[in-house]
């Protein structure tokens, strides 16, 4: 398989690479003769998807760019161009930087936990054992519940008085009783609030990471591992040199998709803490929502929300570069 066709995508194709290695000359002949026709065919296939996202994401996105450089307010149909004023104003807000920092912390910490939990779970599920299907079914449940509703359930689990988590910890003697200093107020203590939000996100999505990784593990061709065994590699060597490079791209893509969804989605933080206490768990989308919609400064809100994009771009490019480098 050629390198060109391996670029990008959740690329699980080690086996395919082994199986399909058509002679390059034959391939060129096959495609070469129908070049124009192939292009028309290809672009026709591509058009519906491209048009859909162009019209319903691209165009609104451009409109948001306009909002971000205007003084648009809700309820006021006339907006003036004010240049980068909204970005400057956001830049000067303390809260903006807190939200930026929290967003990064959220992103990184959640990603670390998700990959750790996801990898170990995937390894376990890779084994053959009785009841595997049942257990697999149980662990994917968090991912299948509608996010808004499961977050509300967590809100009740984190309740300052009736927290079921505290009840258990208290019975185990790990914390004091209600009203004592060691009784954690999950959503009320600054360091705990952000952690609580991250925990919900990790709980919801680590099964997904595990499934994606499981697919990745399963795709590592047995021949490759066997070959490594014959070469006398130890388990860890095999893991380090054979398995990791093969699953890494999948892990990255899975994480990236999930992270993007996590960060741009405001429901976890919005429904749990509204960004509180103070601003301790405020992340950019929540801040943008509060300023843009609740307080009505559409322009300022759009500007803040747009800061999410540069935050996500480096992640995207890192992943894409990685994918290219790891082709084989």
């Amino acid at each position: 398989m050629t390198t060109a066709s391996l670029r990008g995508g959740p690329e699980p194709t080690a086996r395919a690479a082994v199986v399909s290695a058509p002679a390059p000359t034959a391939e060129r002949a096959w495609w070469g003769t129908h070049s124009a026709q192939r292009k028309i065919f290809g672009y026709t296939l591509l058009a519906p998807a491209a048009l859909y996202v162009l019209l319903l994401v691209g165009a609104p996105f451009l409109f948001s760019l306009w909002l971000a450089v205007s003084d648009a307010n809700v309820g006021d149909p006339v907006a003036r161009f004010i240049g980068l004023e909204n970005f400057r104003a956001a830049w000067e807000m303390d809260t903006f930087w807190i939200a930026m920092r929290n967003s990064v912390v959220f992103l990184v910490v959640a990603a670390i936990f998700k990959s750790l939990l996801g990898t170990s779970l995937a390894f376990l599920l890779l084994q053959n054992f009785r009841g595997k299907k049942l257990i697999r079914g149980l662990v994917v449940i968090p991912f299948t519940l509608p996010i808004a509703i499961s977050v509300l359930s967590w809100k009740w689990m984190y309740d300052s008085q009736f927290s079921v988590i505290n009840w258990v910890l208290s019975r185990l003697g790990l914390i004091g009783t209600y009203g004592s200093d060691s009784w954690p107020i999950w959503l009320g203590q600054p360091h705990l609030a952000l952690a609580a939000c991250i925990a919900v996100n990790v709980w919801r999505t680590f099964p997904f990471s595990a499934i994606v990784l499981l697919a990745g593990f399963t795709s590592v061709p047995l021949e490759v591992i066997d070959a490594a065994k014959v070469d006398g590699c130890s388990f860890f060597q095999r893991f380090r040199h054979v398995v990791v490079p093969m699953i890494f791209p999948i892990l990255m893509i899975g994480l990236l998709f999930d992270t993007v969804f996590t960060l741009s989605d405001l429901s976890v933080v919005y429904l749990l803490t509204q960004g509180g206490p103070g601003n301790a768990s405020k992340i950019l989308p929540v801040l943008a929502y509060q300023i843009g919609i609740q307080a009505g400064n559409l322009g300022r809100g759009a500007a803040i929300a747009l800061f999410l994009v540069p935050l996500l771009l480096p992640a995207l490019f890192l992943v894409l570069r990685n994918l290219k480098r790891r082709e084989y």
């Binding site: 990008g8 998807a49 491209a50 996202v53 994401v57 691209g58 165009a59 609104p60 996105f61 409109f63 948001s64 909002l67 998709f257 993007v260 960060l263 741009s264 989605d265 405001l266 989308p285 943008a288 929502y289 843009g292 559409l298 809100g301 759009a302 929300a305 747009l306 999410l308 994009v309 996500l312 771009l313 995207l316």
Partner: peptide, 15 residues
């Protein structure tokens, strides 16, 4: 196409 996934809903919902 992948990048459009990056655009947060919060930006898009008003347009």
């Amino acid at each position: 196409i992948f990048m459009t996934y990056l655009v947060p809903g919060i930006i898009l919902f008003l347009p």
